[in-house]
Amino acid sequence: MSESKQELGLTPLAGVVGKYGLDARKALGQHFLLDETLCARIALLPGDLTGRHVLEVGPGPGGLTRALLGKPLAHLTAVELDERAIAALAEVVAAHPGRLTVLRQDAMKFDGVAQLPAPRQVVANLPYNVGTPLLIGWLREAASWERLTLMFQEEVAFRITAAPQTEHYGRLAVLAQWVADCMVGLRLPPGAFRPPPRVHSAVVVITPHAEQPPPELFRAMERVTAAAFGQRRKMLRGSLKSLGGAEALLEQCGIAGERRAEELPVSAFDALARAVLARGGA
């Protein structure tokens, strides 16, 4: 352990799990990242965090938490449901007075926009079982976030960044790429975690566009993509029937009815969502 950590009074990261009985729990989607070098690499991906208010979800033993606190951020808020991790993180709170707040709370019920001042970012190794719904919630409020740096199972990362006419292209890719630039910043093998998951993981860096759709247009896009990809093997004239007037809708947007959802670029879904909204279907 380095002198700086000795001075801070922190238990070495590798010893936190044993000290606090933090065996990973499948029900909480836990896979802990205890490699300090990897944590430091992830903390670089959001870019300059000077003056930023950062939200971390599921900090667990606090590896990424410690790495983030090494940056000149304004404040770090960590939301954690596991009481054992709260005890482990108390060391980090004491070592960084006034810079870290740890809340025992369900992240699905935490309103980061209301709780964190701007400019705000999310940097998190997300629990596998809630990663996608958390992301969609943040995408709905993309205008309020400067950047999202999020670790997922690799397949989910591919679903976020996929291009049209590829295996992983679907609803999540359209929603994410419609409001943000999305790129994979780092891939991690199963052995990087304790316990190792069965799959690789990847960190996705999501940077919202300067201009964002209003909430009613986002809702229309959710409806359109849910219909289109809910029956993705069908032609669009069939999969969009639930929206009503599918043939007229497709003709209005200049999209052939025999095309399938995975063939359309994000711009085509944008046109469909705007058409649905214009006719009062949000």
Rank of each mutant, 00 (worst) to 15 (best):
L13S: 13
L45M: 09
I206Q: 02
R219H: 14
R140E: 15
A202S: 13
Q6Y: 08
L240D: 03
P133E: 01
L34N: 04
L22P: 05
S144L: 03
D111E: 13
L139R: 04
V179Y: 08
E247S: 15
V156C: 08
G238W: 02
G60S: 02
P61I: 01
A78E: 12
V266I: 11
V57N: 14
G18N: 15
R84G: 09
F32Y: 14
C253M: 00
E211D: 11
A142W: 08
R260F: 07
T50C: 06
P97L: 09
H31P: 05
G230F: 11
V123Y: 01
G244Y: 06
L172T: 10
L277C: 06
R171M: 10
R120D: 04
G280I: 06
P72Q: 07
A95S: 10
V16R: 15
K109P: 04
T161V: 15
T77G: 08
L68Q: 07
P119V: 05
E262T: 05
E155P: 11
L33Y: 01
C182Y: 07
V17E: 12
E91S: 10
Y169V: 00
A228M: 08
A67C: 13
P265Y: 06
G9D: 07
G70P: 07
R171P: 09
L28F: 15
L55H: 04
T132S: 15
L55K: 01
P190K: 00
G29N: 02
G245V: 02
